[in-house]
Amino acid sequence: MLNESATTATDVFEEHRSVLFAVAYRMLGRVADAEDVVQDAWLRWSGADHAAVREPRAFLVRITTRLAIDRLRQVQSRRESYVGPWLPEPLRTDVAAAPDTAERAVFTETVTLAVLVVLESLSPLERAVFVLREAFGYPYAEIATTLDRGEAAVRQLAGRARRHVEERKPRYEVDPDRQRDLTERFLAAAAGDDLDGLLRLLAADARLVGDSGGKAKAPLRVIESADKVGRFLFGITRTVPPGLEFTVLELNGGIALLAHQDGVPDSVLQLAVVDGKIQTVYIVRNPEKLGSLAAG
């Protein structure tokens, strides 16, 4: 039962809001979609019989997960017609604390761009099980209740999802100091017209994935090989408009560059590192995915 003190339904919801958003974002990969799901969860919570709720957090996570599954099924059809590669919406994680139920490293790994891209290929139920189990450490029995499935079925979904992610997840390094160093060297080489220096930072099979949604200039296909990636990046640095400013910050658990043009977010660039070399360059330029960074 809820404590018969001055604690209100709003106080209880606000206490768990950050966890609900964390679940919804990992399910959907979009800040706006996650916020909508959390708002819908609040509406469900505000109309619930609070006296009958023994564990508010479990109740709220259950509502949020089910709403996120429904929303994911809706947005998946829209993503099939998305123009160019699709990347998750960048999320600031330097101001988001991991919940007590998960270690920081594991919690952060499940929000990286690379992992979220892999999660896109899971079914909504597989994704829900993976998120609740791997990011938040929920027991199988509780996940089964959340999804209204048998525990044996949930264990099968978890095993299938985990194998899928492990097979497809790139083995990126997550050392923030090394990532920051490479990011700064990358920016210096690009800004200094140092093509050779830029190429030395790239792995031989480097890739560049750009997300514009057809709403800004970005490659409509993945660019592959160090030479092609380096020359593409070298080319665009020569057309950078005056007044473009870069900020180094933490997005999705890793160091990233946020470019501002006249105070408005223009693009996000993040580097995935393997064995001290840049393996993948992620660029997000779709303005609809940069709005939440306006205050950053």
Rank of each mutant, 00 (worst) to 15 (best):
E126T: 02
A128E: 09
A128Y: 01
A128F: 00
F130M: 00
F130K: 03
V131R: 14
R133Y: 10
R133I: 02
R133K: 15
R133C: 04
E134F: 12
A135V: 00
F136H: 13
G137C: 09
P139W: 05
P139K: 08
P139T: 00
P139G: 01
I143F: 14
A144Y: 10
D148T: 10
D148L: 13
D148V: 11
R149D: 10
R149K: 13
G150W: 05
G150F: 02
E151A: 07
E151Y: 00
E151D: 02
A153V: 08
R155S: 08
Q156R: 12
Q156H: 08
Q156Y: 01
A158H: 10
R162E: 13
H164W: 12
V165N: 09
E166F: 04
E166I: 07
E167W: 02
P170L: 07
R171F: 07
Y172V: 12
E173F: 08
D177M: 06
D177E: 11
D181I: 00
L182K: 13
E184G: 03
E184K: 02
R185I: 03
L187M: 15
L187R: 15
A188Q: 04
A190D: 05
G192I: 04
G192P: 09
D193P: 00
D194S: 02
D196P: 01
L198R: 00
L199C: 04
R200C: 05
R200T: 03
L201F: 05
L201V: 04
L202M: 10
A203G: 15
A203C: 05
L208R: 04
V209L: 14
G210R: 03
G210S: 13
D211Y: 03
S212N: 13
A216Y: 03
A216K: 01
A216I: 07
A218W: 04
E224K: 12
E224T: 10
E224I: 14
D227S: 14
V229H: 05
V229N: 02
G230A: 05
F232L: 14
I236D: 08
I236G: 01
R238Y: 06
T239H: 14
P242L: 10
P242W: 06
G243Y: 04
G243V: 09
L244E: 10
F246W: 12
F246K: 09
T247A: 11
T247I: 11
V248H: 14
L249S: 04
L249I: 11
L251K: 03
L251T: 02
L251V: 09
N252L: 02
G253P: 09
G254F: 04
L258I: 02
L258V: 08
V264Y: 10
V264T: 15
